[in-house]
Simulated assay, not measured.
Amino acid sequence: MDDVLRRAPLFAALDDEQAAELRASMTETTLPRGEALFHEGDPGDRLYVIVEGKVKLHRASADGRESMLQVVGPGDMIGELALFDPGPRSASATALTEVKLLGLGHGDLQPWLGARPEVAMALLRAISRRLRRTNDVMSDLVFADVPGRVAKALLDLSRRFGVQSEEGIHVVHDLTQEELAQLVGASRETVNKALADFAQRGWLRLEARAVILLDVERLARRSR
Rank of each mutant, 00 (worst) to 15 (best):
D2I: 01
D3N: 10
D3M: 09
V4E: 03
L5R: 12
L5N: 00
A8T: 04
L14E: 01
D15I: 05
Q18P: 01
Q18I: 01
L22C: 02
R23W: 09
S25P: 02
S25I: 07
M26G: 04
T27Y: 07
T27H: 12
E28N: 08
L31N: 06
P32R: 08
P32K: 10
G34E: 02
G34Q: 09
L37E: 03
E40C: 00
G44I: 00
R46V: 04
Y48C: 00
G53D: 05
L57K: 00
H58I: 00
D63Y: 04
D63P: 03
E66C: 07
G75V: 02
G75C: 10
D76E: 12
G79H: 00
E80N: 10
E80F: 13
L81M: 15
A82E: 04
L83A: 09
D85W: 12
P86C: 06
G87N: 00
G87P: 00
P88K: 04
P88D: 03
S90T: 13
A91G: 01
T94I: 05
V99F: 15
V99W: 09
L102Y: 14
H106A: 12
G107V: 08
L109K: 05
P111V: 12
L113K: 12
G114D: 14
G114I: 05
P117E: 06
E118F: 08
E118W: 05
E118T: 09
L123G: 11
L124Q: 14
R125W: 11
R129L: 04
R130V: 02
D136V: 14
D136S: 14
M138F: 14
D140A: 15
L141H: 14
A144Q: 07
G148L: 01
R149E: 13
R149V: 12
V150L: 06
A151C: 06
A153D: 04
L154W: 11
L154V: 13
L154R: 08
L155Q: 08
L157W: 05
G162I: 02
S165D: 02
S165A: 09
S165C: 07
E167L: 10
H170F: 12
H170P: 00
H170M: 05
V172H: 06
V172S: 05
D174N: 13
T176N: 03
E178G: 07
V184S: 07
A186I: 06
E189K: 13
E189W: 11
E189P: 08
G202P: 01
G202L: 09
W203G: 08
L206M: 14
L206W: 02
E207G: 15
A210C: 06
A210R: 02
A210I: 08
V211F: 11
I212T: 15
L214V: 08
R224Q: 03
